[in-house]
Design a protein around this nucleic acid. Structure first.
Length: 153
DNA sequence: GCCAACGTTGGC
DNA sequence: GCCAACGTTGGC
C-alpha cells in the first residue's frame, strides 16, 4: 500500500465538496501534467492520500482519502467545453487518466504549509521542495503518519 | 498582483 | 538536440 498527496484548489474543489459528494467519492480528473498522471497510474485501490488545499489562505493538508478505483481514461480531456480540454485526446486516445477517491477523514485541525516546513521528519517531503508544483506525488508512510499526528493537535 | 520556478512549445 | 519564449502553478 502506497501513500500519496493530492492538491486541489478549494475554490475549485474542496474537501467539504468531497464530503457532500455522492458516496463521498469523486473522480480526480483534470490532471494535465505527465509526471502527475504517471503517479495517478501507479495508484492502487486501497492506497491512501493526503488532501491538500492549494492557492488559498492558508494552504494546508486538510484530510485523507482512499483510492477506490485505479486509473482509467479522463473524459474531461476530450470535452471541448472543459477548462482542461486537450485537443489531442479522444476516447480512442485518452492521453490523460484519473482515479476515484473516497473521503476517509477531514482532519480535526488542518495542518498549514507553514507548520509542515518546521517539522524535521518532513524535510524530504516533495510538497516542501523549492519550486515544487506537482499536484500528485508520493509521500512516505512515515511522512503520512507524521502529518496525521500533527492533525490531531 | 507579483514573481520564481518549472513545463511545454516550436524555430533552428 | 538546443534554447528562447511563453504559459502555468502556487506561495507570498
Amino acid at each position: 500500500m502506497r501513500h500519496w498527496l493530492l492538491k486541489s484548489e478549494p475554490d475549485c474543489f474542496s474537501i467539504a465538496d468531497l464530503a457532500r459528494a455522492k458516496k463521498k467519492t469523486t473522480c480526480w480528473d483534470g490532471v494535465r501534467n505527465y509526471q502527475a498522471r504517471n503517479f495517478l497510474r501507479a495508484m492502487a485501490v486501497g492506497d491512501r492520500a493526503l488532501f491538500y488545499h492549494s492557492s488559498c489562505d492558508p494552504p494546508a493538508v486538510v484530510g485523507t482519502v482512499e483510492v477506490v478505483r485505479a486509473a482509467y481514461p479522463d473524459p474531461s480531456a476530450w470535452d471541448p467545453d472543459d477548462d482542461h480540454h486537450d485537443p489531442r485526446a479522444s476516447p480512442e486516445n485518452p492521453v490523460w487518466s484519473m482515479v476515484d477517491v473516497r473521503l476517509e477523514a477531514i482532519f480535526p485541525r488542518a495542518v498549514p504549509l507553514d507548520e509542515l516546513r518546521g517539522v524535521r521528519a518532513l524535510a524530504g517531503l516533495e510538497l516542501l521542495r523549492r519550486g515544487s508544483r506537482l499536484s500528485v506525488h508520493p509521500v512516505s508512510a512515515e511522512e503520512f503518519r507524521t502529518i496525521e499526528r500533527l492533525a490531531r493537535g
